[in-house]
Simulated assay, not measured.
Amino acid sequence: MDPLMPTQPLFREDAYAAENPATVLESSEAGVILDSSVFYPRAGGQPGDTGTVVWDGGEMAVADTVKGPDGSALHVPAPGATVPPAGTRVAARLDWNRRHRHMRMHTTLHLLCAAMPGIYATGNQIGAEKSRLDFDLPEPPTKEWVTERLNELIAGDHPIGERWITEAELDANPGLVRTLSVQPPRGAGQIRLVRIGAEDAPVDLQPCGGTHVRRTGEIGRVEVTKMESKGKQNRRIHIVLVEEDK
């Protein structure tokens, strides 16, 4: 078998694309690899996307998306789901509400780094219902202070953009990396930077491969529900989205 071509990561070109046409490159009970996909494969603390893969006469529920071989995205079928054969033309459809909550949460965690400059994250987990960030932080502020500061940054409605730098440029500016547990992926020669705020005076700027909202105002209100100790200096901060009454 010829080596698989990597899946074109459409989520990186447009994080708001919820569906795309694609061709099945490989199919098995382990999962389906498409030539292009809007599905984000689990990485960097952000969960893999869920949704459906639909074709003429069939539909496969996607229970998870993980990294496959050679940079591909493996769409993992739900138990008992029928998988489409290789060569099938399909439509890949996200569970958009879940993905959008991940985007709001992910951007909030970047703002949390901005709220406490000079502090390095030691771990993170993004979820649709709640998220957490661990910090190397001997004397943390109160959860009320962090909640207020986060909502101030969100209310600023700062634009969010990206640019790419070389690995050598990152090596020359190591302070851009705000995490001790997850390092930017290397080997491709370029590193993606996600910027919150103006280019000439960013609120936050750090390497990231995940998906984000377009502006901080899109996040809505958040709340720090708990801060706990996970070691001598390691502090865990739990965050939820505060949904407004409709």
Rank of each mutant, 00 (worst) to 15 (best):
K230G: 00
R163M: 11
Y120P: 11
V24I: 01
D14V: 06
P159I: 06
A30K: 13
K230L: 00
I160C: 03
L137E: 02
P41A: 08
L112H: 08
G51L: 03
I33V: 12
R186V: 05
G57K: 03
G48W: 02
P47R: 01
F39S: 01
P185F: 02
P6W: 06
T7L: 02
A15N: 07
R236F: 02
K226D: 10
N20Y: 12
P77A: 10
G127D: 04
G45C: 02
L111M: 08
M116P: 02
V146M: 15
P184S: 07
M5G: 14
I126A: 01
N97P: 15
E19F: 05
P47M: 00
R186H: 07
T50P: 01
D35M: 03
P138Y: 06
A91N: 12
A73W: 10
T216D: 04
V38W: 02
P47A: 03
A22P: 00
Q125M: 12
G58N: 01
E199N: 08
I33P: 04
A155D: 13
H75P: 04
P202K: 05
A168W: 03
V182P: 09
A114E: 03
M227W: 00
R101I: 10
Y16K: 03
V62S: 00
V203P: 07
K230V: 00
E152A: 14
L94A: 02
I126E: 04
A115D: 07
P117L: 04
V66L: 11
V53M: 11
D136E: 10
K246I: 13
L25Q: 15
D2E: 15
D171M: 09
L193M: 15
S229C: 06
R192Q: 01
R12Y: 12
R215E: 09
P41D: 03
T108S: 14
V146T: 13
E152W: 14
R132T: 07
